[in-house]
């Protein structure tokens, strides 16, 4: 196996991982952009999506439909979360919002444990998805899940691009993120925009949850925790609140993580997560507006 194959293989891994991070980070940024809410409970919509898909496939629903059910369930979960927990504290200080979201995630994860148990559940895949292709005598492998992940990510992100530039709701979401007061003045129904933002963001989380579970082969209530933290890093690298930045950050982070494991010595590569979060702190300190926006000051 030569080095080029190795690089290509790592590239496939990076794109696949980066797609998942991008899907989660986009939702975080959509909600943060409009509400300034650092939503820790966003990751739990991955659990909602994945378990909904699991339950529907156990009930005999075809897998592709099951993915749709996971996405819709994620969106519904996001809308309920907004109505029950976030609307009552809307307009409160940043820290109150953040703490509320911590409480929401705590409730949802424990609810998940209560309902599904804390042990991982097998996530069955249909045969047509349980395949992989090998090239160059096994030097290059990619699974149909990799392909599905990238394909669905691309399709859903194209949809997002269309949505935020062509529909009044999407444009309104961007407008409200920029200037909530002016959005009120032009007659946008800001309440509805916020609900739409949660639905959209959580639908992406639901999709990410299904794909994450498909890659891991298992689902469990705490599955959204680590991806959520990584998505924070991705969103902040890209500039928190910016949709394009979140995508960029997601793929950058995926690439970086794969590179740490693939190219750094074995003594260092286990420290991947500490390195990634140290990077987060560096960004918050020196580039709080993200890579693309060096001048946004959030420091004191």
């Amino acid at each position: 196996m030569d080095y080029a194959d190795y690089l290509i293989q790592q590239g496939i891994n990076a794109i696949s991982l980066g797609s998942l991070y991008a899907l989660v980070a986009v939702g975080l940024s959509i909600v943060f952009g409009i509400l300034r809410l650092t939503n820790f409970a966003h990751g739990d919509m991955m659990m909602v999506g994945a378990f909904s898909t699991l339950l529907s496939s156990l009930a005999g629903v075809p897998f592709l439909w099951g993915i749709g059910i996971g996405v819709v369930a994620g969106a519904a979960g996001g809308m309920i979360m907004e109505r029950v927990a976030y609307r009552p504290v809307r307009g409160a200080p940043d820290v109150t919002l953040l703490l509320t979201s911590l409480a929401v995630t705590y409730i949802l994860e424990n609810l998940g444990i209560l309902v599904f148990g804390s042990s991982p559940k097998n996530f069955p895949l249909p045969d047509w998805l349980d395949t992989s292709w090998e090239f160059r005598d096994g030097a290059l492998t990619f699974t149909s899940i990799n392909v599905l992940t990238v394909a669905l990510t691309v399709v859903s992100l194209l949809f997002l691009g269309w949505f935020v530039t062509r529909t009044t709701t999407g444009l309104g979401m961007r407008a409200a993120a920029e200037d909530m007061g002016a959005a009120h003045l032009v007659g946008l129904n800001v309440n509805r925009l916020i609900v739409a933002a949660f639905a959209l963001a959580s639908a992406y989380a639901g999709l990410a949850g299904v794909l994450w579970a498909a890659q891991a082969g298992v689902v469990q209530p705490l599955m959204g925790f680590t991806p959520l933290l990584k998505a924070f890093v991705a969103a902040i690298i890209g500039g928190f609140g910016s949709i394009g930045g979140a995508l960029f950050g997601g793929y950058l982070l995926g690439t970086l993580e794969v590179a740490i494991v693939a190219f750094l010595p074995d003594e260092i590569s286990p420290y991947r997560d500490p390195i990634v979060f140290a990077l987060l702190i560096v960004f918050l300190l020196f580039r709080p507006g993200g890579i693309l926006q060096p001048n946004r000051e959030e420091k004191l």
């Binding site: 902040i236 997560d273 140290a278 300190l285």
Partner: peptide, 24 residues
């Protein structure tokens, strides 16, 4: 470095510290 940050930025950064400690 961290005490220079404010608002939710300092919260997220200190959470990063917790994750780093755990990872180490």
């Amino acid at each position: 470095p961290l005490m220079r940050l404010s608002g939710h930025f300092v919260s997220v950064a200190t959470m990063g510290f917790l994750i780093i400690v755990n990872g180490v």
